[in-house]
Nucleic acid binder design. Structure first.
Lengths: 119, 119
DNA sequence: AAAGGTATACGAATCATTTCGTAGATGTCA
DNA sequence: TGACATCTACGAAATGATTCGTATACCTTT
């Protein structure tokens, strides 16, 4: 339930691309940095054991799929992050993140709408 | 420049309490969970080596102080977090964090003001 | 001065994560 | 069929973070 950083990278790929083989994931990862094939394989096997990924055997290949939803996972991660880095204050996180970001006026409007909904 | 989780816990204490001895920090940490004195000591020594903390020797004691500012550090952490967990989209992080949080109406107003400033 | 308490220094055990080499199975193609 | 490519399984090295035991020095109190 607490993916490590490398696991997260793999999840990203699967969330973006949908169910994939090790090779597909590995190739995607390699666009950012060099990672050996067996490294990715091993990681995905471990994630399968931990029930983070499901696996379907199609002939000789294994096709993996994320069992955690992106949203749920992000929710968890934010909780932990707020605790460890912001002493529990989500608002501080939000304001800092917003300050750093180069949000477009549209995005800012969208955010305002979200705020109004929350009130 | 990339504090680990334990290091962050120590930084939190120093940011909150200001310059402190190992014992003071350790006692603070122990309110949340049990940590041995020498564990905290070692960690703070390492942080000193890494130039995360400064150290002043006052008689027999060493007084440590954070060399990283809370804001700067949080900024870095957010950047990394946005990358690893939100594929680079700070807006997604902000909206998720806001959705999860139980912000008070006052806080939401404050946030709106911040947004207007950014526009 | 001796005993007890408390400091720092430091090496090393432990634990988690990441990386990769090698082996064995299976498919493909000349 | 035989050579070659590609797949999974698996053990274990490498790395990084955390934790702690022990040594040594110094103060304080009796």
């Amino acid at each position: 339930m607490k993916p490590t950083e490398s696991e997260l990278e793999i999840l990203q790929v699967l969330w973006e691309k949908g169910p994939s083989t090790v090779r597909q994931v590995n190739e995607q990862l390699n666009q950012a940095k060099e990672v050996g094939y067996t490294t990715t394989l091993k990681l995905m096997q471990i994630m399968h054991e931990k029930a983070i990924l499901s696996r379907t055997e199609e002939g000789r290949y294994h096709v993996y799929e994320a069992l955690l939803s992106e949203e749920e996972t992000q929710k968890h991660l934010i909780d932990r992050f707020v605790d460890t880095a912001f002493r529990g204050s989500a608002m501080k996180l939000v304001m800092q993140a917003l300050g750093n970001s180069k949000a477009t006026p549209q995005e800012l409007d969208e955010l305002k709408r979200l705020i109004d909904q929350l009130k």
